[in-house]
Amino acid sequence: MEVKKLTVLGGRDKDGNPEPVRELELKRGTVTAVVGPTGSGKSALLRDIEVLARGDTVTGRKVLVNGELPPEDLRFNPRRRLVAHVTQTMGFLADCTVAEFLEAHVEAEGTDVDPYDVLEVANRLTGEPIHPDMHMTELSGGQSRALMVADVAVIGDRPVVLLDEIENAGIKKHEALDELTSHDKIVVVVTHDPVIALRADVRVVMRNGAMTEIIRTSRSEREAAKLLEKVDDWLLELRERVREGERIEGVEPPEVTTA
């Protein structure tokens, strides 16, 4: 089934009042950020999308696929899953090398993707190079995140990707989002990070379990996002240099004035 868009229909907040935002549209190739304080219902929103809620979850929301209530089968049939979820905590149990891991995933998905394409994308997202013969369990947090983002972008054929707070990962966040949208995914990302929130096309504000506002990223916010990306890349580079044991002296922050 070709998924062009998802529509989240508003339910109720934690006190049972109708959710202020009645409709949230998620289109392919766009990034939607979900912002709000801890406990405001961000994860529950991701969850509703993941299970294609039909008024039966605690929030009472419904999720439409291409404008219609999807068939039940989409929820339970493991062959028709629409959503990939890159979660906050991520360990690997796999007792194998990166190459073996990716080969196993390619085989499970039944695609003819070259595992080395995934690796190439992953290495663009992280400052610490990942080698195919590295053991999965020795990857750092940043390497794991980069590999998993590349994995869902390149191997998985799921149209919807949910990301849970990738900011703590030590990867090039904006490039990670660009990579996913270039594969024409519907990307929904929970974040507290201005680099990501302002890179998104829209952001949904959560409060007390409800979507309270949809903010379309303004032109000046987009400009700000570009500057933040530079700062972010600069920090990432410093991080790698510190990791390499360098002395950091006389650092200059990047040029952060608008053109």
């Binding site: 890159v86 991520m90 690997f92 149990l93 995933h105 794991s144």
Partner: peptide, 13 residues
């Protein structure tokens, strides 16, 4: 939640 999406995919397969 303890493993990656890729490992869940392989397991479900």
């Amino acid at each position: 939640d303890l493993v990656s999406q890729a490992e869940r995919d392989v397991f479900i397969k």
